[in-house]
Design a protein around this nucleic acid. Sequence first.
DNA 1: GTTTGCATGTAAACGGTTACATGATTGG
DNA 2: CCAATCATGTAACCGTTTACATGCAAAC
Lengths: 176, 176
Amino acid sequence: MDVRTICLGILTRGDATGYEIKKAFEDGGLQHFVEASFGSIYPALSRLTDEGLVSVREEVQEKRPDRKVYSITPAGRAALIGALMKPLPEDRHRSPFIFAMLFADLLPPARVRMLIDRYVAQSERKLAQLELRAREPLFAGERFAIDLAHTMYTAMLDFLRKRHAEFEGHTLQAAE
Amino acid sequence: MDVRTICLGILTRGDATGYEIKKAFEDGGLQHFVEASFGSIYPALSRLTDEGLVSVREEVQEKRPDRKVYSITPAGRAALIGALMKPLPEDRHRSPFIFAMLFADLLPPARVRMLIDRYVAQSERKLAQLELRAREPLFAGERFAIDLAHTMYTAMLDFLRKRHAEFEGHTLQAAE
DNA sequence: GTTTGCATGTAAACGGTTACATGATTGG
DNA sequence: CCAATCATGTAACCGTTTACATGCAAAC
């Protein structure tokens, strides 16, 4: 999903600044699935404003830059729903880890074990985040997304731990 | 992983043309994780040739455009291993489906059910592909990658089927 | 007869990231 | 004292996708 649509989505949950939109996904356990950088969020919000899909009010602050608080307009809501009613693009899961594992036979066994260990550790952190998030009050859709992510990470970790154990003591060399 | 590295990786398994490199991932069950288009593969191969990481030989063909068969050079092999020894970038799983589910409460219930149905069907197709692939002789690393992908899709499907059943007859409206 | 497969390549457009610029406040 | 948080924005760059250009052969 493009950054424009992501912004609209978050704004359906309440008004927010560009900064807050970024934060909304950053530590929600869903960064893996939806993310955007400032360099894309700010221009997106300007354009959405020009197009009347969101509106802005400026809150003057002392000792801090003024905040621009964005609200979604009825047209924006319609645009979001429109985007979600069209055929969705397919998921793309770009995984440097899986790519590297594909060529495990070219790497020193210690490197392969390290790669797996790190990926396990990373996934454990994500799982922990998801569990924290799951304790908060959520919209049903968010609950669904978080539970799905939880399921996938759990399955992956089980697999990784099992296979990692199998690597102990021997290498992942070419096999037929 | 960038297209350059992907090309190098495939060429460690044997010489190939740009066309074949594209095909190598396209139906291997791993498209979800690694992919590239012609528009990026051909320029990447030219650049790799200029840099001495691959070499080309041209095979003249009648009634078809000549094929340019690429081979990885020792320098190319070293470059690939170098890339796999550096810290890997994190996975990014961009999922329009999960994004849409996050806003399920804004959509007609029929649309939500349809979204899930389609995602289930898509995942079943991917699983079938993976199972086909798993029957072929594979490098250990490929086996690992395919089994991992299989594990994740299976877990996801179980989850989706279970939840879908729960949706029958009622909607995914806002909850607290 | 139309689609799919084989085969290469370029150019424009796109969407996004990274780095830069600025700067006070708060918490460790 | 240093890092993180809050806060906005621009510009350069990057990698990739999409569309275009070309064209025969085989399969359905």
